[in-house]
Amino acid sequence: MSVDVVVVGGGPVGLASAIEARLAGLTVTLIEQRDDTIDKACGEGLMPGALPLLARLGVEPEGMPLRGVSYRDAHRHADYLFRGGIGRGVRRTTLHSALTRRAEELGVERVTAKVERVDADATGVTVAGLRAGWLFAADGLHSPVRRLIGLERPGPRRARRFGLRQHFAVAPWSELIEVYWTRRSEVYITPVAPDIVGVAMLGGSRTDFAETVAGIPELAERLTGAEPASSLRGAGPFRQRAARPSKGRVLLVGDASGYVDAITGEGLRLGFAQARVAVAAATGGPAYDGQWRRVTRDFRVLTSGLVGAANSPLRAGIVPAASMLPGLYGAVVERLAR
């Protein structure tokens, strides 16, 4: 069997890549070893810039409006309202189902398999018994394809960060993404349904979910008596590196191409943008590596700076600085939200 594009990875970015390719008139087969709806520990906030990218794919997932971001610590908060439109809080399972339906509508073929070998040459790629002109690897943070084609780069052992997430059955109390900065963790509150909020946190490998929530009195009070609406999930470590975004006709898309940290919440927007430039490269457009650098530039610069501050003695000053310098704080949030 031969197709134009094989996409490895059936998460949101893999599905978006497959949909983009079909909209461009390419034949597509998606390879994913899991055959059910894929969940992930994440903040579940789609930034304003992500929604138009989804809409052009024909995908409009249900969710809750997100009008801005609120950085908070024990003494103060700094609120910023998006200027370029609103975002949306969407359960990861809801997003995955919406993308899956759209991919099926467009005729994306699906193969349930585990990728253990990739053979690439000047004219195409052979993987899992399929021959394709191009392979888009959207197989996540710990991408097997990245490793198989020799683009894996060891990440730093120091300051490795992980994510935890659980939902609670309580009515959202804000249309802002609330980010509580504690001494060692960031805790993200995202409304995802009229009666459900998601609580996600980033921290070290020993971060205790219940203990962290209990250490934020304002949040602990709001969640008092609220029943869990999902099980506790984990992810990470988040810092992952690739030697470069592509090798021949194999293009790394989304988290597989390298990831700094989930701290600013725009990972899906970046993944959707990378899917678009991957399809452009596969259809005679500009080379992927240069376009990948272009669409990720703000993320790499701004997020790396914020992560550096969060892992330094400057951490305690992040929320005070956001409060005292609202123009700078707003400019950074707006830039990332686009």
Rank of each mutant, 00 (worst) to 15 (best):
P194G: 01
D195Q: 08
I196N: 11
I196V: 15
V197D: 00
V197L: 03
G198Y: 09
V199K: 04
V199R: 08
M201F: 02
M201S: 02
M201N: 01
L202Y: 05
G203M: 05
G203R: 00
G204Y: 12
G204S: 13
S205N: 12
S205W: 13
R206P: 07
R206C: 05
T207E: 06
D208W: 01
A210Y: 03
A210S: 14
V213Q: 08
V213G: 12
A214T: 07
A214P: 04
I216R: 06
I216N: 11
I216Y: 07
P217E: 06
E218L: 13
E218Y: 07
A220D: 14
A220G: 13
E221F: 03
E221L: 13
E221G: 11
E221Q: 14
R222D: 01
L223S: 05
L223F: 10
T224Q: 15
G225L: 05
G225W: 07
E227D: 14
E227P: 00
P228K: 08
P228I: 00
S230Q: 06
L232T: 05
R233C: 01
R233L: 14
R233N: 12
G234N: 01
G234Y: 04
G234R: 12
G234L: 02
A235V: 08
A235P: 01
P237G: 00
P237S: 12
P237K: 05
P237Q: 04
P237Y: 05
F238E: 00
F238V: 09
R239I: 06
R239L: 13
R239K: 12
R239D: 14
A242H: 04
A242F: 08
A242G: 10
A243I: 08
R244K: 15
S246G: 11
S246F: 03
K247Y: 02
K247E: 14
K247F: 09
V250K: 04
V250W: 03
L251I: 00
L251M: 09
L252Q: 10
V253E: 00
V253D: 03
V253T: 11
G254Q: 02
G254M: 05
D255V: 04
A256S: 14
S257P: 08
S257K: 02
G258A: 07
Y259T: 10
V260T: 13
V260G: 00
V260A: 00
V260I: 15
I263H: 12
I263Q: 09
I263D: 07
E266C: 11
E266T: 13
E266I: 14
G267R: 07
G267P: 11
L268G: 04
R269P: 02
R269S: 15
L270M: 08
L270V: 05
G271K: 05
F272G: 02
F272D: 06
A273H: 08
Q274G: 10
Q274M: 15
A275K: 00
R276N: 12
R276K: 15
V277T: 13
A278S: 12
V279I: 01
V279A: 09
A280C: 11
A280N: 07
A280K: 14
A281E: 01
A281C: 08
A282W: 03
A282D: 12
A282L: 09
A282H: 05
T283L: 06
T283H: 06
G284L: 04
